[in-house]
Design a protein around this nucleic acid. Structure first.
Lengths: 297, 297
DNA sequence: TAAAAATACTCCATAGGTATTTTAT
DNA sequence: ATAAAATACCTATGGAGTATTTTTA
């Protein structure tokens, strides 16, 4: 079968994006007549009109819309092929953009980064700290190559690999009753003032669900913007809270007059994983980095 | 970014398929030097060797394998784009290859086909009757555009649309006890000789699961090769069986000395649906045909 | 009368061809 | 000696350019 050229598909997408032949021509760094004839060629090949020529610009026909949608994935798949092949020549090298949620990044990454710098000196790791949904969006938009997030996180076009568990510990003032109590279960928190991170952090949601607390409770909703702040608020007697073990091991409580205690319930915590875009040329590397992080856990 | 040509990707896939530059050149209807230079060009663009030149032919490097896999989907997506656009110009026309399982095809298709012939005279419908898994394979291999099957059927790359329910009726000799019994439940069959279709028919599995019968039971495993045979075996006193209402309405029992009876249990039956390959250029038409069948149910 | 797309034409880069050489068994 | 791939070189198609005309708000 006779196929259109990738260049022609680029032109088609450009017109879809820019809404006019002239602007599209600029964005493709060709002249307007070049686009005109290329599009005419494609329309001839497909036997159907793709673009509605209007006095002020151009718009897509129904068939054009469908074609552009397919063309976009074809072009991006081809770009993936290129990057994947190039990458295969030099695995774990060049720029790699890794995202992580704020409750993981500062505690888990330092050790892994040090190790990566030694084992793969030619890998330039760019980091971005953000909330899960934004990281996922960035993966989709090819702004990131991989992201460390809390699982489970199902999303179309996104694949994940589990790296390990991160237990939640109770953090409370040293003289708090729950620290001395013979047993500690997650249900014991229902009558406590539990301090949480502000909205949008997935750790907040995990903490709420683990403790079976309603997401909106009476009283002042006291929230912190980081785990360090949270610890200081606990030390100040405003309440108790939960901390990922990972953060405590990284010394987030050092210097504050608080005590930590594990729960008697098994499996109070969150699962940590690494996510990447399906078909990403750097999926293999994402998994390699995942393995390193897993070893560090 | 600089992209390879679709033609170059075709060449690459051809070499993967044929295992040699010369044979690949033949299959692409170009000369061997054309391929040589084209591949060299791609390897230069990607900065990595894709093909291992050997004294007797050519084989793929690791990177080549990966590239070919991606190239195949890119090429087939592009072919889809072309067919989809061409189809958009003339919906429900041209050759359309429809599959159906043997327990649906002869009973459901006649009415629908007649209607289609009137409403879309320029649609050439090619039919194929086979078991579900083969139909699904054919969809994936682009040998079929759509297939009527029993749901649920989850498979990657396959999408389905539910068209309706097909109730199971008891079929038994006229003087059978279950025909006169005041009530009829599916569990009443556990002590009966239930005749089934031979292995591979999904109706067989549905019948077994609906009646909670073990798939292997003691005694002679009497099986039929078609519903018509099944009816004759029931008439012959070999046992009772289940028939889809669809088949009975189409007259599969006419002429045989058997009686039909509905079960008191609700929802004893199967769901019928139409399936197509994800991204198929004729997905929209598959759904149109689905609507017609749905109306006929 | 402008702004946008189409048309007319020119040009050269390159895809593809033919002829030949190199390589490895 | 032979089969396969690489190289050298040539040709012609068509992608892209400039200049201009047509169209319509």
């Amino acid at each position: 079968m006779h196929l259109p050229t990738l260049r022609q598909l680029e032109f088609l997408c450009a017109i879809a994006n820019e809404g006019s032949f002239s602007k599209a021509a600029d964005s493709c760094h060709v002249t307007q007549p070049t686009l005109s004839s290329a599009i005419k060629e494609v329309e001839g090949l497909l036997g159907i009109q793709l673009i509605e020529r209007e006095s002020r610009g151009a718009s897509l026909t129904r068939a054009g819309e469908a074609a552009v949608e397919r063309a976009r994935t074809i072009l991006s798949d081809t770009a993936d092929l290129v990057s994947a092949a190039r990458q295969a020549g030099a695995p774990l090298s060049g720029p790699f953009r890794l995202g992580a949620i704020p409750t993981i990044a500062p505690f888990l990454l330092p050790r892994t980064l040090k190790q990566l710098r030694i084992s793969h000196a030619d890998l330039k790791l760019y980091l971005r700290e953000d909330q899960t949904d934004r990281l996922i969006d960035a993966l989709r938009a090819r702004k990131l190559d991989a992201a460390l997030i809390a699982l489970p996180w199902e999303a179309p076009g996104i694949e994940t690999m589990e790296l390990g568990e991160d237990e939640f510990l109770l953090v409370a003032p040293s003289d708090h009753a729950l620290i001395k109590s013979p047993s500690l279960k997650s249900t014991d928190l229902s009558n406590e003032d539990v301090l949480l991170l502000e909205d949008g952090h997935c750790l907040r949601d995990h903490a709420l669900s683990v403790c079976r607390l309603p997401s909106k409770r009476g009283g002042a909703d006291v929230t912190a913007t980081s785990l360090a702040t949270l610890v200081h608020m606990v030390a100040g007697g405003l309440g108790v809270s939960l901390l990922p073990k990972l953060a405590t091991e990284a010394g987030v409580t050092s210097g504050a007059d608080v005590k930590l205690r594990a729960f008697d319930n098994p499996l109070i915590g969150r699962r940590i994983g690494i996510a990447w875009r399906t078909g990403s040329p750097r999926a293999a590397e994402a998994q390699m980095i995942g393995e390193l992080v897993k070893a560090a856990l």
